[in-house]
Design a protein around this nucleic acid. Structure first.
Lengths: 114, 114
DNA sequence: GTCAGGCATCGACGACCGTCGATGTCTTCG
DNA sequence: CGAAGACATCGACGGTCGTCGATGCCTGAC
């Protein structure tokens, strides 16, 4: 390493993601990197008003209510979902800002040439 | 459950992601859901020609060469990176199709209202 | 043919993740 | 008040992940 005359590789032209930015975005992707959580976000986003209650989400999967609650907590802790208690039921809503942050990640730092 | 008269929740208006689609997309997100791999993809995408050799990537991290090789293998196995051996060195290149597939995921199935 | 270097693979270890059953908390109803 | 239902939390289990040191393979140089 550190051989100045070698230059085996192409230099970095653009501005790659910083280590700090990577550490911040990775948790969001990690929260979404699960089939169940992906479907949960999709179900909530496709619901009227961009929100859905846990009882309905629970019926959409062959999983225990405890497992669904856990996944919702992960998504909420990652800042992807908002939680609102209405009476006996709890409604989760998508946070468009968080999703657009992920979308911007692929638009800004990884531009497809053509 | 299965009480037909309850209707506690909002009905699903849009078309949520299918279980099959979620199972297909989740591995891509899981491959990207790591700070090191995120920076690897970013570094490669920011390099000239959208490709970079392992020796250069190895110098950008405080990790073992074996670890970097492992992460590159994960990204390659997920279909996000292309591998090309040139002489002694190995070059990895981003696959724009795979990245745009992820980008489409957030554009198509989760449209931000405004 | 021998040597050096770039990269992949192997085996191992600790840490984390997804799922479950059981239990707790809180709200509404009668 | 007590009962029932919706949801969260707890503790535990097996599986996967990220990282490492050691080793193997393959290429180019001498």
């Amino acid at each position: 390493m550190s051989d100045p005359g070698l230059a085996c590789c192409t230099p970095l032209t653009g501005t790659p993601m910083s280590a700090n930015q990577a550490e911040q975005v990775a948790p969001l992707l990690k929260a979404l990197a699960d089939p169940v959580r992906l479907r949960l976000v999709s179900l909530i986003a496709a619901s009227a008003g961009g929100e859905a209650c846990v009882c309905d989400l629970n019926d959409a999967f062959d999983l225990t209510q405890a497992t669904i609650s856990h996944h919702l907590k992960v998504l909420h802790s990652a800042g992807l979902l908002d939680r609102e208690k209405r009476g006996v039921w709890v409604f989760y809503a998508v946070k468009p800002e968080a999703l657009s942050a992920v979308a911007n990640l692929f638009d800004t730092t990884m531009p497809v040439p053509a």
